[in-house]
Amino acid sequence: MNQARAFTLLSSAAAVCLISSCGNSPEEIRLADGTVSAAHAGSSAELYAEGYAYEQAGKTTKAIKHYEALANQYPLAKEAAEARYRQADLLYQTGDLVKSFKAFQSFITSYHGTRHYSDALAKQEAVAHSAATGELKHNFLGLKSSVAATTAEEMLIKVRDNAPYGASAPKAQFAIGDLWQRRGNEEKAIKAYQEVQLRYPKSSLAPEALFRAGTMLMNEADEGNQNQANLDQARSVFIDLRQLYPGSKQAKAAKSKLAQLGSQDLQRSYDIAEFYRGKKQYASAAFYYREVIKKTKSGTELNKLAKQRLAEVSQ
């Protein structure tokens, strides 16, 4: 009986008007105290009943449209929060995940603290991380769909900012770094990883974020983009990592990275000395050979080479 009555109501002119978003705007139907009039409250209740009847009958697309129309037309009605959530959740269940993310965002923004709030945050977070890793699937087909990196980043930022003091925030910020690292944009990845430590210094993800940032700065040098600024920044990142998170496994790995950077510095000093020797600027060459000798252990290959060259240019 209730379902039959609901489908009968759908044919009414009032219901048609609601679905097509005609008539008064949400601002026009509010009373002075911010609530809605009794007449509009009745319309919102009817619209919700129709949407629910469609949902129970398995007519999901029509149910979604009704719930969306209700939430858009009557955002202050008592059924509005439930309608917006059901719209988002049905989109989520049917695999229209990008649209579901937007609907969840509308729910989270407008209905903070309501009974579905935590569930909406969790589902929205799952969608954003799937989009970032390229594993966003349409549930009803099981097919993967790609999302532009900028769109995925925007989704993660919303997840981060929706609950800035929750565990989801540093996780989302870290995922932004991972997203850009996967997409080959090291500059954005490094900045995003460093932001993890700046925003969430107590997060368990902070040591890994710093380690990744420092490693990428070193990799740029290995790939032919070496410059002193990058190497100095990498050294600074690894030093910060060891000082801020001394007990982490990343701090131990940073120690070897710093040693590697030290070796690169010594090799660079030797190469500069060789450059000046080739130019017959022996005083400058001698200066850098002495730097290498002073900073390397006696008997090592580089130490022996520097001593040999120093003897040659000093004659």
Results as ranks from 00 to 15, higher is better:
R5G: 04
A163N: 15
R160N: 11
H129I: 12
R183N: 13
V159Y: 01
V237H: 02
D271F: 01
H66L: 14
D240E: 15
F104A: 00
K191Q: 04
T151Y: 02
Y67W: 05
Q197H: 15
G299V: 09
E50N: 10
A213C: 13
T300L: 10
L90N: 07
F101M: 02
D178L: 11
I176K: 03
A128S: 03
A4E: 13
L9I: 08
V159W: 03
Y117A: 00
A128E: 01
Y52H: 12
Y54M: 09
K102Y: 05
A128P: 00
A132H: 05
E301W: 06
F275P: 02
G247A: 13
Q264H: 11
K255H: 09
Q197F: 09
K59E: 15
S20P: 06
E154D: 15
F238M: 09
E153P: 00
Q264K: 13
G224D: 03
S118W: 09
L305D: 06
E223H: 06
S43F: 07
D265M: 14
G23S: 07
L210W: 00
A41P: 05
Y270H: 05
G278I: 10
S118L: 07
Q194G: 04
L310D: 03
R115A: 05
K307R: 08
G58D: 12
A53H: 00
Y193D: 00
A41R: 10
S106F: 08
R160C: 11
P246F: 01
Y270V: 09
C22T: 04
D178E: 12
K252S: 14
Q3L: 13
R212A: 02
Q267F: 10
L156W: 02
E187C: 06
L305S: 10
N219M: 12
P75F: 02
L70Y: 00
D161P: 05
R290D: 12
D222P: 04
I157Q: 11
K171D: 13
Y245W: 09
T215L: 10
R199Q: 09
S118Y: 04
A49F: 02
Q105S: 13
A80G: 00
A120I: 00
A38L: 14
E28F: 03
H138L: 04
K280C: 07
R212M: 06
Q87L: 02
G299K: 10
K191D: 10
R86F: 01
G247M: 14
G299S: 10
L18C: 09
G299A: 08
A169W: 09
A81V: 02
F107N: 03
V237D: 01
Q93P: 03
Q250G: 09
S284W: 05
P207F: 12
L261M: 12
M218V: 11
Y52A: 11
K279D: 14
R277Q: 15
F275A: 13
R242Y: 03
Q228A: 12
V36C: 07
S130E: 13
L156C: 09
L10P: 04
L9M: 12
R199L: 13
I190M: 09
Y200N: 01
A189S: 01
H40I: 03
R30A: 03
V237F: 06
I157R: 12
A45M: 08
K257A: 08
E125I: 06
R309G: 00
N225G: 07
S269G: 05
A81I: 04
L121I: 04
A192E: 01
L302E: 06
V196N: 02
